[in-house]
Nucleic acid binder design. Structure first.
Lengths: 127, 127
DNA sequence: CTGCATCCACTAGGATACTG
DNA sequence: CAGTATCCTAGTGGATGCAG
C-alpha cells in the first residue's frame, strides 16, 4: 500500500495505526497546490503577508491565511508578529519547511520540462 | 512570482502567456493528493484498476477514475484495455510519469522523517 | 471488472465588510 | 497591514445504479 510505503522504517507496534493516519493527514495537508506554491514562494526569504499575496499568483486573502495557519501548525513556517502600527507580520520557512523545497523544486522543474510533451498528449487524447 | 520561476528558461515572447497558464494548470493537476498517491502506487509496476483501488488507501471508485483520466490526458500514465470478458484494464506510468516519482518519493520521505517534529509543533500550536 | 451517470451532502474558495 | 467572520456559489467527492 502507498501508506505502508509512507511509513517504511517507522517504529512499529501500537503507534503504527496512529502514525499511519497522522502521516496521511500531513501528506494531505502538504500535497496541495497552495501549500506547495507558498513554500516555493518563500524559499530562503522572509516575506510579509502582503508580499506573499503578491508573490503567489492568484491566491486569495482567505486561502493564503488558511494555508499559512496550516503550515504554521505543522511547523513548516515561522510567523513573527512585530507589534507596530500598522502591524508587520513576517513569514519564513523552518528547517523542515526548507527540507521540502527540494521536492517542490523538482515538481516545478518537471512541469516546465514536460510542457510540450503534455501539450501533445492532450492533443492525442482529445482526437 | 512563483509562476515566473515555474517558467524559468522557457522560450519567451508570444508563447509566454499561454505557457504560463498551461504550466499553472498542469501544476494544479499534478499537485494534488490523489494524483501523487496514484503515481507513488504505480511506481515501476503495471496495475489493474481494482488493484490500484486496493493500493491507494481510501480512494473512491470515482476519484480513482477521474484522476486516472486526468493523468492519462496529461500523458503521465498509459491505459491498456484488453478486450476480454470480463474486461481487463492496465495502468502504467509513462516516461514523464516516472520522472515525477523522485519528487513524490521525496515528499513521502519528508513526511515520515518529520512526523515527530510536526506532532510537537502541533502540540505547541494548540497550547 | 471497468466505467459512466446521477443524486446529494459538504467543503472549497471568492467577495465583502469589519476589527485591532 | 493583517486577521477574522459572514455570505454565497461552484465544485468536490461519496454512494449508488446501470451498462458494456
Amino acid at each position: 500500500m502507498v501508506t505502508k510505503q509512507l511509513l517504511a522504517g517507522l517504529p512499529e507496534d501500537a503507534d503504527l495505526r496512529r502514525s499511519d493516519s497522522l502521516a496521511r493527514e500531513i501528506f494531505s495537508d502538504v500535497a496541495n497546490k497552495w501549500a506547495l506554491l507558498i513554500i516555493e514562494a518563500l524559499g530562503e526569504r522572509t516575506l510579509r503577508f502582503g508580499e506573499l499575496r503578491d508573490e503567489v499568483e492568484g491566491v486569495s486573502h482567505k486561502m493564503l491565511t488558511q494555508n499559512l495557519r496550516m503550515l504554521e501548525r505543522n511547523g513548516l513556517v515561522d510567523r513573527t508578529v512585530h507589534p507596530t502600527v500598522p502591524p508587520r507580520v513576517e513569514y519564513t520557512l523552518t528547517g523542515p519547511g526548507r527540507d521540502l523545497r527540494g521536492a517542490v523544486d523538482a515538481i516545478c522543474g518537471w512541469t516546465h520540462q514536460h510542457l510540450s510533451h503534455i501539450e501533445r498528449a492532450r492533443g492525442r487524447f482529445g482526437g
